[in-house]
Simulated scan of single mutants.
Amino acid sequence: MKRSLEERLKEGTVIAGEGYLFELERRGYLQAGSFVPEIALDNPQALKQAYRDYMNAGSDVVLAFTYNAHREKMRIIGKEELLEPLNRSAIRLAKEVAKEHPKEEALVAGNISNTNIFDPEDSESRARVRNIFAEMVKWCKEEEVDFVNGETFYYHEEALIAFEEIRKQNLPAVITLGLMGENILRDGYTVDESCKLLSEKGALVVGMNCFRGPDTMQPYLAEIRKNVDGYVAGLPIPYRTTEENPTFFNLPDGGCGCNLPTETTFPTALDPLYHNRYELAAWAKEANDIGINYLGLCCGASPAMLRAVAEAVGVETINSKYSPDMEKHFLFGQDKTLKEHNLNYRLKA
């Protein structure tokens, strides 16, 4: 039998591949803006390939792509009747791919996320959010996922509601928070306070994901690690966020000479602002060294980036055989059979 998430965490670091939202938009199968994963019904084979690519790049988890596949988002795009079929399809496709792992069947995680309707001053919004999570987690349970990932919450109370609905179905919970530019959750909790409370209530893993790159997430991960006894997750975006612009929502690109269709580079003009894979690998090693147990990347990440993260903490992935090796390159290689006139030209090329 495959090991559970908790068993794997006890034995070492777990790698979790996320970032399907931006990756599938880049591949042409998802609309930026609405960001609803209709691909689970419209192009199931394309979704399976994305799952496969991240698993082969080192992910121990095939995360069912149901981010934004909740009742409120489906209402906005006028397709509520597709809500349950979409959720079940995304999970079933994930289970098919998880079985392909050649060493040990990958874990399958259900996924719930920020609803964008939570309002701490509105009791009706609390009830709507709870109902949204309850039905999605119920489908996760019926489809027999290994755990549920609740992510990108910028209110502590919404994260707590998500955890409570996961616990009602007796499923392990990974709960991660998205920290906006105010550097505090919108209902006044610091991320380490929120994570400590969620961990004490029984969440298996707590931490942060999305919004922030490694440079502006790492200090908060360090505080979480100091204050939480259990397992801690870190899944930043792969963009060069700064103290002045700590999230990717308002990252400027001073080198862009064109008129963007949006006020900011987010979400479709972030390309020049990527960290390279070596910077992401350096972050992963630093995070792992301080005890971040559940590591990955979020929106914007490619499989090659995730592979670099996995390899940085000692994981040999299925596709590590394709990791860079410049030995045979005609300009930069060291192979003795390469042409000397090319090697001498490399500094001028």
Score class of each variant (00 low, 15 high):
residue 186 R to T: 03
residue 283 W to C: 01
residue 276 N to Q: 08
residue 257 G to T: 04
residue 220 Y to G: 00
residue 258 C to K: 14
residue 240 R to E: 10
residue 301 A to M: 06
residue 210 C to T: 02
residue 280 L to T: 09
residue 234 G to S: 04
residue 239 Y to C: 02
residue 216 T to F: 14
residue 191 V to P: 13
residue 273 L to F: 10
residue 229 D to V: 08
residue 268 T to I: 13
residue 198 L to K: 09
residue 224 I to A: 01
residue 283 W to F: 15
residue 192 D to I: 13
residue 230 G to L: 11
residue 216 T to L: 13
residue 225 R to L: 13
residue 268 T to E: 14
residue 296 G to V: 01
residue 238 P to Y: 03
residue 210 C to F: 14
residue 216 T to Y: 14
residue 249 F to K: 11
residue 258 C to V: 14
residue 271 D to F: 11
residue 240 R to N: 06
residue 236 P to L: 04
residue 268 T to P: 01
residue 222 A to C: 01
residue 222 A to H: 09
residue 305 M to A: 12
residue 224 I to M: 05
residue 223 E to W: 03
residue 199 S to E: 14
residue 192 D to T: 08
residue 313 V to C: 03
residue 235 L to V: 00
residue 187 D to M: 08
residue 297 L to R: 01
residue 204 L to Y: 13
residue 304 A to D: 10
residue 260 L to R: 15
residue 255 G to D: 13
residue 274 Y to R: 13
residue 216 T to H: 07
residue 209 N to A: 03
residue 229 D to H: 10
residue 261 P to S: 04
residue 256 C to M: 04
residue 228 V to E: 01
residue 254 G to C: 00
residue 185 L to T: 09
residue 295 L to A: 03
residue 301 A to Q: 05
residue 203 A to W: 15
residue 292 I to A: 03
residue 201 K to E: 14
residue 300 G to C: 07
residue 259 N to C: 02
residue 191 V to Q: 02
residue 240 R to A: 03
residue 206 V to W: 13
residue 251 L to F: 09
residue 280 L to A: 07
residue 306 L to Y: 10
residue 213 G to P: 09
residue 301 A to T: 08
residue 262 T to Y: 15
residue 225 R to V: 11
residue 275 H to S: 07
residue 205 V to W: 12
residue 210 C to W: 14
residue 310 A to P: 08
residue 236 P to Y: 05
residue 283 W to S: 01
residue 222 A to G: 00
residue 251 L to D: 03
residue 273 L to T: 00
residue 235 L to R: 10
residue 258 C to W: 11
residue 185 L to S: 07
residue 281 A to V: 09
residue 294 Y to E: 02
residue 314 G to D: 11
residue 259 N to S: 09
residue 305 M to N: 06
residue 310 A to S: 12
residue 222 A to L: 02
residue 228 V to Y: 09
residue 313 V to M: 07
residue 202 G to H: 12
residue 260 L to Y: 09
residue 308 A to W: 05
residue 224 I to D: 02
residue 296 G to W: 10
residue 199 S to N: 15
residue 301 A to R: 06
residue 195 C to F: 08
residue 248 F to C: 04
residue 201 K to A: 13
residue 237 I to K: 02
residue 302 S to R: 13
residue 258 C to M: 09
residue 205 V to P: 08
residue 265 T to N: 14
residue 271 D to N: 08
residue 287 A to S: 13
residue 262 T to Q: 13
residue 228 V to H: 04
residue 222 A to K: 14
residue 201 K to F: 10
residue 236 P to I: 06
residue 227 N to C: 04
residue 223 E to S: 11
residue 208 M to I: 01
residue 270 L to F: 08
residue 225 R to A: 07
residue 311 E to S: 06
residue 263 E to Q: 12
residue 222 A to E: 15
residue 307 R to D: 01
residue 237 I to C: 11
residue 269 A to E: 14
residue 192 D to R: 04
residue 202 G to F: 15
